[in-house]
């Protein structure tokens, strides 16, 4: 017989390294044609961080996304970055890039203030490839013209530097008290499963994943992170396991180390819960690691809801589920006999 159930799991997860300083730095140069080059040591490992960082630079400089070129991940060409770990790049490198872009923009605004004949750069804003007077956008000059003026007339190339390190403290070794991280994200996932009570097979029908990521710099990429995390979480919950015998890995190939295929993945419904934070670049936090965390427990809780079997050791394989079902059957028979 097939039985359905729903299970929920929630999560809190931090952004960045635990306690240790984990800075990122960036350099920005605005070229004479209004395009920009951003140098950062952060690595795109597939999550799309380089794209998100380019968006941050473009937004801060008020230029188009396509006008930004990223130079990344070269220890002799790009400034220090702690790395693409700990869900930290959007938040920490993002802040560094925003600061570096802001630093370059400072020069642009100073030069533009003279060009637009306003008292102070504070009266100006950048956007759509232009620098214009707040509240009278008709008074504007292109970023390209300003950059050219700054570089070739004023002799002050619009370059900027920026770095960011979240404020953290080490934990007291006895109590664990302190401030190990600056920002945290939250999430809830709900899984719906169908369990075959005779074979212990679990079919995950659907997963809803709602993730707080501050502000989503790029919702397309955020969705991708959530969906990918759910797949990794599903593998963790139901199939993946390295089996060691006297230290030897018994399944060192994909033949017996089972990853989910396209057919094993259910429909994933994502919700991006956007509550911008003051410390993040344009309010962003992060989403990379958290997306996998609630999946396995949501599935295991859904299995319980479906068949009254709670699995305490991952992965929740059909062998374990069927054994537990048989155990329960026996216990029920004993109870009835009493």
């Amino acid at each position: 017989m097939k039985k359905r159930g729903k299970g929920i799991a929630c999560m809190v997860y931090p952004i960045g390294f635990t306690s240790y300083p984990n800075p990122s730095a960036a350099f920005v140069q605005v070229n004479q044609d209004g395009s920009a080059v951003v140098l950062t040591g952060a690595t795109d490992v597939g999550q799309g961080s380089t794209t998100a960082l380019a968006q941050i630079a473009a937004e801060e400089l008020g230029i188009a996304y396509d006008a930004v070129t990223m130079v990344t991940s070269d220890t002799q060409r790009t400034p220090f970055d702690l790395g693409s770990v700990a869900s930290r790049v959007t938040y920490i490198t993002g802040n560094a890039v925003k600061r570096a872009a802001g630093d370059a923009k400072k020069t642009l605004l100073q030069v533009a203030a003279e060009m637009l004949d306003v008292m102070s750069p504070d009266e100006l804003e950048a956007g759509d490839g232009k620098i214009y007077v707040k509240n009278s956008p008709d008074r504007n000059v292109s970023v390209a013209a300003v950059a050219r003026e700054a570089t070739l007339v004023k002799g002050r190339p619009p370059i900027g530097e920026g770095s960011y390190n979240p404020t953290t403290t080490f934990l007291d070794p006895e109590t664990g008290h302190g401030k190990p991280y600056e920002a945290y994200v939250f999430a809830t996932q709900i899984a719906e499963v169908e369990v075959d009570t005779e074979t212990g097979q679990v079919d995950v029908l659907k997963i809803a994943a709602a993730h707080d990521c501050g502000k989503a710099i790029n919702p397309l990429l955020v969705e991708g992170q959530i969906e990918g995390g759910v797949a990794m979480g599903l593998g963790y919950g139901l199939m993946e396991e390295m089996v060691l015998e006297n230290g030897v890995v018994k399944n060192p190939q994909f033949t017996d180390y089972i990853l989910p295929t396209a057919l094993d993945m259910p429909l994933i419904e994502t919700a991006i819960v956007e509550v911008p934070v003051s410390t993040g670049p344009f309010g962003a936090k992060g989403v990379g690691e958290p997306s996998l965390i609630p999946t396995a427990p949501a599935i295991v809780n859904a299995i319980y809801d479906a068949i009254g079997i709670r699995i305490y050791d991952l992965p929740a394989t059909p062998s374990k589920i069927l054994a537990a079902l048989k155990e329960k059957e026996r216990a029920n028979i004993l109870k009835e006999e009493e």
Binding site: E198, T199, G200, V243, K250, N251, D256, T317, P318, S319, L322, A323, K326
Partner: peptide
């Protein structure tokens, strides 16, 4: 690695 003997026996019956 793939299943227990008990599981195989029981699920054989079902299949």
């Amino acid at each position: 690695l793939r299943a227990t003997a008990t599981f195989r026996r029981e699920s054989s019956r079902v299949l």
